[in-house]
Amino acid sequence: MLGNVRLAVQHLSFVILMYGGRFGVHLGSAVPCFSCPYVYGCGGNCYLMGLQGYIGFGLTWAQLWGYQGLRALFWLVVFAAAASLLGKLWCGFVCPFGLVSDWLTYLRRFLGVASLRLSRAARARLAPVKYFLLAWLALGPVLVNLGLLHPDFYLPFCQICPGKSLLPLFEGEAKYLTLELTNSVTLSLSVVLMAASGLTVAGSFFRERLFCVFCPMLALFNLLRPLALARIVKDPGLCQGCGACSRSCMMDMDELWLEREHDSGDDGECLGCGGCVEACSSRGCLSLKFLGGTVVGSSPELARGLRTGGGRARG
């Protein structure tokens, strides 16, 4: 049931965020997911672009103390508020790029191809990459402003983000699937972009939400986690250790499964998809909470609502 709700919300969000601008919908410059401004007519701008540019690290020191600085602060507050409101649910329920990745996963499941499993050690090694990308996203524009980096490193993360090349395809625009031969910097960045895009598509086919392992937006969410109003919470006393939550996790997290003492939940790699809550058949063990109140709690009935065998793939 929860999975179906997520599917519906994801698709609605995709339509709004990808095409909303064409109908006069624009949610501003601080959308906490990959609502890509490279998509003409998008319904809101991914905050990462603004953060690298005109409402963030792209501002000069002088601009920071002026009106533009205030504006940057405004959008930061808007982002923090929006990110806190839904927490990781932005990733699991709203992000259009996440939905594209999920489509690849549904295709893989339909074909019965086994999933690529990353060991815990591998995941631990890959997890810091998102923070490096966040640092790159912040540092790059500063270095450009200081003249230490070529101006074409402007929007340094957007230049290599697979969302830039792949999302515009859904409005018929293929111009970002190109190598940009203008100079060596644009060429290098576009080569990295094409390689990242190709690897993302291939990787996301075999491994659910592979890109999210590296997503700097997730890094931002993790930094803001103490403010999150929507959380996934575990009551370890009710856990029977079956591992269903771990198997259902889009990110192959086993932290939730192995937790025995604290009410941990959506930290680290969690994308707030609620799959763990739906898969857990121990009543009340896992819950999706908002402001401390339970929105959905695990139960045998909810778990049995999942189609597990014969019939169409689980949503």
């Binding site: 659910e208 029977q240 799959g275 898969a279 058949s281 045998p300 999942l306 689980r314």
Partner: peptide
């Protein structure tokens, strides 16, 4: 046992 949550439906 408990509900077998299946995500990966390959063999």
């Amino acid at each position: 046992f408990r509900h077998v949550a299946l995500k990966d439906k390959s063999v």
